[in-house]
Amino acid sequence: MDPQQLKATIAAAKAGTDDAFGRLLEAYGPRLYGYFFRATTNHHDAEDLLGEMTLKLVRQLKNYDDRGRFEPWLFRIAANMVRDRIRRAKVRPKAISLSAEDKYGRRLVDSFGSDGDPVDSGLVAQERMQHLRRALDTLEETTREMVLLRYFGELSFKELAEMFHCPLGTVLAKVHRGLKAMRNVMGESDASI
C-alpha cells in the first residue's frame, strides 16, 4: 500500500468504514503474523497474537496520530504484545505432556507431522526454528526486539532509531553485534548435529 493509499485508508477506518479495517488487515496481517511467528516460534501463539492485534487495531486506531509513521506505530504495539507474552510465559512456565490436549482439545502428540507434510520436512523446519529461537534467546532484550522488528517487521533502521529513541548508528551497532552472536550460536548448533 503506497503512502497516499495508506493515509486514505487510515482516515476511512477512523471515520468508521469497516472495509478500511479489512484493507489494513490484508496489507499488514501477513507481516504481523510473520513477526509474531518468528518472535514466538509457535504458530498458535502467533495466531492468538494476530487476533489480539486485530482487535487492538480497531480499538486503538483512534489514538494514532497520523504523521506518516503507521508501521512503527503498529509494530510498536506488536512488540509490546510479544514482550508481554514472553514475560508472562517466563513467570508461568508450563510443563507439557505430549499426551496432554491443547486448548482446542487436540492431543499435542498428534500435532507433529500433521498437515499432510512429509515428517522430514516438518522436522527440518522445526529444527531450524529451534536454532533460531536459541540464537534469539541469547540476545539482550532490546537487541532481540531490534533484530525481530528489522527483519520480520521490515522496519528501516531509521524507524527503529525513532522507536527506540537512540541514534541510528547505535541501532545498527546493536543489530550487527546481535547478528554476529547469533551466527556463533547457530554455527555451534549446526556443528553439534
Binding site: L25, R38, H43, E47, L50, M129, F152, M182, M186
Partner: peptide
C-alpha cells in the same frame, strides 16, 4: 548474517491465522 534469519514460515499456518483474524475483525 541476515540470511541466518531466513526461517521458513508455514504458509498454511499463516492462512489459518489470517482467516481467524478476519473473523475476529468482522
Amino acid at each position: 548474517d541476515e540470511l541466518l534469519l531466513d526461517a521458513p514460515i508455514d504458509g498454511r499456518g499463516q492462512h489459518e491465522a489470517m482467516a481467524r483474524a478476519r473473523r475476529r475483525l468482522s
